[in-house]
Design a protein around this nucleic acid. Sequence first.
DNA 1: GACATATCTTACCAAAAGGTATGTACCTTA
DNA 2: TAAGGTACATACCTTTTGGTAAGATATGTC
Lengths: 127, 127
Amino acid sequence: MSMETDTLPVHLPPDLADGVFPAGCPSRTVLDHITSKWGVLVLVALTEGEHRWSELRRRADGISEKMLAQTLKTLERDGLVLRKSQPVIPPRVDYSLTDRGQELSALLVPLVTWAYDNADSILKGQR
Amino acid sequence: MSMETDTLPVHLPPDLADGVFPAGCPSRTVLDHITSKWGVLVLVALTEGEHRWSELRRRADGISEKMLAQTLKTLERDGLVLRKSQPVIPPRVDYSLTDRGQELSALLVPLVTWAYDNADSILKGQR
DNA sequence: GACATATCTTACCAAAAGGTATGTACCTTA
DNA sequence: TAAGGTACATACCTTTTGGTAAGATATGTC
């Protein structure tokens, strides 16, 4: 059922049957990574360029070391974040976005900006 | 520290000190709602118009009734989803996006589309 | 009277996420 | 000798999330 005429300007991938992302679909896994609480913050923190571990801890305010490590590992495995470690003492490691990461952050930044702009109004429960 | 010349085309809200979203910030709460696993799927499911409970269950494939109820309640409280219930037997309830919800989904759809397009390549671990 | 329908709610339990605290490595500075 | 800086890893425990299954509802249908 359904064969809606398009009334809205926003569209899903056309090759997606009935607009349903199946439960086991790979896109679900990726979506979980990139919309994870800390994933978003870290990706956004890196939009303005390279940052070190301690800078990321400050920027993703409230993140624990454990979560930062875990999040960075996932994002690196996904090819979104690039890790450059220099064999110096004390250690120095710089994190940055890959091309793919930048592509993504270009979509994420408008989202967090929207959240930032609308947060007060939303939580007060009116418009 | 920092006074970076802008090398990237993407920018955060300018009134945001050093690009840090503080931990207690209202935008964090909103961000958690709209980037939640099921929140995203439900919002996206509604981009193509009004849907009933049972249709949403199909579209947000894998969601449990409990989670659907909970997610819809949060999104309704946030003024993103509109609930229209008709006092008939059996009950009929239609869900749709509010204006604010449409604003948001316009940002969310590109994100899930990106995830869909890049998922295979990402999970294989190369580009 | 039993059953089906559609939209939920609730209680209970398992799984996952995440915090805290501690440890490691190596060099520098006091 | 001791303490401190930097980037982690690991074990343990708590909190949150989420699934399953059952029940509630009010009617019409067999």
